[in-house]
């Protein structure tokens, strides 16, 4: 945990100092120190606004989104007792994608992505999970298989609807794609404060239930014999992590890979108890997404790589390396 926190601080600091607009790191450090009441800032007004109005909110959004996606992924894996579960399992991504596409295409002729895209994406995500739950979540509480299958059905249906809407308006395809691939580029302090309440609530709920998720690892039947209210716990955790994921997706688009790879990397390093996995997901998920975003906005600067591309590009090799190292130590 200490290692992970140190890593987070270094990553956040590093990301603040790096950007296409070169500002001497010393000046930024001096500026941050002056905000803490030490010394005086030597940054110009322009430089200061680049740091505080462009870089800082972007990093903050990355921290919040990364933490939420990783925790939601870890929670889903525990709730479904399936290592392949990710936060988009029940249709959050497809619903948000449809909502955002409708928003972008609906306005149609403007060249900008409308400001209410996040609202429609959020509504789409929540609607998708609700449909999945009403289709697959009823009946015997012990069956998560029907819920997952419901998610698959709802996802494919909404994705095809999204494709249809997207194809019907060729002028906005590029913007739809950019949104779908995910980006922190439009981050402002208001987008951070908008999703922060959801994310904080969801993370607190999921981390508080970590012990219950450990109990759930012996299966529904035995958890019930141990006094765990399995059905209620499941719906509660799914609702919480879906809500947080929907909020994040509405602000940053579809960033894949974080929710599945971060919990697994942690599992390989720190063991299988959710009491360790979920708190570490908060820290490592946040750090991972900020690193990925820093790569995305600097490698081909001044243009940017889609964040979803970078998370997979950075994440997959790290995952394979750790997997290999672990395998060797086990054998």
């Amino acid at each position: 945990m200490t290692v992970a926190l140190t890593l987070l601080v270094i990553v956040t600091g590093g990301a603040t100092l790096i950007g296409p607009w070169r500002i001497a790191p010393g000046l930024i450090l001096g500026d941050i120190a002056s905000h803490l009441g030490v010394g005086h800032s030597h940054l110009s007004a322009l430089q200061s606004s680049i740091v505080w109005q462009i870089r800082a909110p972007r990093i903050a959004l990355g921290l919040v989104a990364g933490a939420m996606l990783a925790v939601a992924g870890g929670t889903y894996q525990g709730v479904f007792r399936n290592p392949l579960a990710d936060p988009y399992l029940l249709g959050v991504a497809a619903g948000a994608g449809l909502g955002a596409t409708v928003a972008i295409v609906g306005v149609g002729h403007g060249s900008a992505t409308p400001t209410w895209t996040p609202l429609l994406a959020f509504a789409g995500a929540i609607a998708a999970v609700s449909i999945t739950w009403s289709v697959g979540g009823r009946g015997r509480s012990s069956s998560t298989a029907t819920l997952v299958l419901g998610g698959v059905a709802v996802s494919s249906l909404l994705t095809s609807a999204q494709t249809f809407v997207q194809q019907s308006s060729s002028g906005s395809i590029a913007r739809v794609y950019i949104w779908l691939l995910g980006s922190l580029g439009s981050a402002t302090w208001s987008s951070v404060t908008m999703i922060l309440p959801y994310v904080v609530f969801c993370i607190v709920v999921c981390v508080a239930c970590a012990r219950a998720l450990d109990v759930l690892s012996v299966g529904d039947l035995e958890s019930r014999s141990l006094g765990l209210p399995v059905a209620r716990l499941r719906i509660f955790l799914i609702a919480a992590s879906s809500l947080g994921t929907a909020a994040v997706v509405s602000a940053v688009g579809l960033i894949g890979f974080v929710g599945i790879i971060v919990p697994h990397v942690i599992r390989l390093v720190a063991g299988t108890s959710y009491r360790r996995i979920l708190p570490l997901c908060v820290v490592v998920g946040a750090a991972f997404l900020v690193v990925a975003d820093t790569v995305a906005r600097t490698v081909v600067s001044p243009s940017e790589l889609p964040l979803g591309v970078v998370t997979a590009l950075v994440g997959a090799p790290i995952f394979v390396l750790i997997l290999n190292a672990k395998r060797r130590s086990v054998e």
Partner: peptide
């Protein structure tokens, strides 16, 4: 019984205390 991968014997036995202490 479902044996959770990676759980220690001590943690497993301690699962038996679930109904006695707070879930959180």
């Amino acid at each position: 019984p479902v044996i959770p991968f990676g759980m220690s014997v001590r943690d497993y036995v301690a699962l038996g205390r679930t109904p006695h202490h707070s879930l959180f």
